[in-house]
Amino acid sequence: MIGETTAYQLLDSRHKEKWDELVKACEVFDVFFLADYLALYEQRGEGSARLFVYRESPEQYVVYPYLLRTIPEKVEGDTYFDIVTPYGYGGPLYSVQWLSDDADFVGRFREAFGRYCRSEGIVSEFIRFHPYQDNDGALDAHMPVTVAGDIVYNDLLLSEEDIWANTASSKKRRIKKSKKNGVQVQFINGENITKDDIFTFYSIYTETMDKKQASSFYYFPLSFFQEYVQQLAPYVMLAFARHNGKVISTNLVLKTAGFATIHLSASLKEHLPLCPNCNLRYESILWAKEEGFLVMDHGGGKEKGDSLFAYKQQFSKSIRQYKVGKKVHLETIYEQLASGLPGQMQGEQADFFPEYRKIGS
């Protein structure tokens, strides 16, 4: 522990066992809350992994994992920080889910967290909430919580016949065409993923990002994926679509308890006429159902209603809202940091948050 009062504890990635013990003892959890998941992004230089623990009894507590980032610009010679949840889903995780709707408990948690932030020079906070745990709960009384977009998911309690019925006709034709073309799907659980499998995924993923002219945010080195599989093996599955033995399309799936998420996907452009992507995604849905998961999450698009979202929506008619939270803890410092921006500041209402990180980007 790097700090403690009677109200809260603060853990870092050195305290993995205690961190994960608290997370796994919650009524529900997901891989996005585990120490190793945040440590991956810490190693990538995106911030220092932290777990804030607010506890009122052994049974009633909340854990909140995030990345603590140093703000490059100093204010009057002093260094300040901000926090963000890593890529994926996050926010507070409650030991029992009903606590997320207990306004008094949430209020006491946020009061303690706000005091901590102000005392440690944390200027702002950005949360990507977990859409299937509804963990924004009563937080809208303490920060602006807004809908960032919609995400697509499959309800895996539906029958296979209903899942197929909810698949768009155009995708059904592509799935059938892919199978007719001899495309075969392979699933490899984390413990069985080899170094060659990781390199195959990395190569196809990197080529796909090049093809899409993706921003640097979506690029990861080979070492990242190697650590990813090594550290998160029980929670990872690689899905490959093969043609004549060659991998031509791939999904990286994260899985915990009732949730499965197609976290990253990629394919080789020259093999797209074989329709491997549709076949692979549909078979991944069926795999998740057969494995006993309740939800297969596809995520959303880069922008609301874009072509990526439309593609995912052709595999399911089920939609959930994806929410984010924004909080300024040190108003005066925030204003000074953002003072170089043209126009009037919007603070927590800004589209790009925190605004000061947009300067020079």
Rank of each mutant, 00 (worst) to 15 (best):
E4I: 08
T5Q: 04
T6E: 13
A7W: 04
E21V: 06
A25S: 01
A25C: 03
C26G: 00
C26A: 02
D36N: 04
R44W: 08
R50F: 00
E59Q: 15
T70Y: 13
E73T: 06
D78R: 14
D78V: 12
V84R: 03
T85D: 01
G88N: 07
Y89S: 01
P92I: 07
L93P: 00
V96M: 09
D102T: 10
V106R: 03
R110M: 14
A112C: 04
R118T: 10
E120H: 14
I122R: 04
I127E: 05
Q133I: 14
D136F: 11
A138I: 03
L139S: 05
P144A: 05
T146L: 14
V147F: 06
I151Y: 05
Y153N: 11
D155M: 03
L157C: 14
L157E: 15
E160F: 08
T167G: 00
K172S: 12
K176L: 06
S178A: 09
I188R: 04
G190S: 11
E191P: 03
K195I: 14
Y205N: 08
Y205P: 04
Y205K: 04
F220W: 11
Q231C: 10
L232V: 10
A233I: 07
A239R: 05
V247H: 02
I248L: 01
T250N: 09
N251G: 11
N251R: 08
L252G: 13
A257P: 05
H263N: 13
H263T: 12
L272G: 06
L274V: 06
C275Y: 12
N277R: 08
E283H: 10
E283Y: 09
I285P: 04
K289H: 14
K289T: 13
L294T: 15
G305N: 02
D306C: 03
D306V: 03
K312Q: 03
K317D: 15
I319F: 02
R320V: 08
L330M: 04
E331L: 11
E335F: 10
E335L: 08
P342G: 09
Q346P: 01
Q349I: 00
D351W: 13
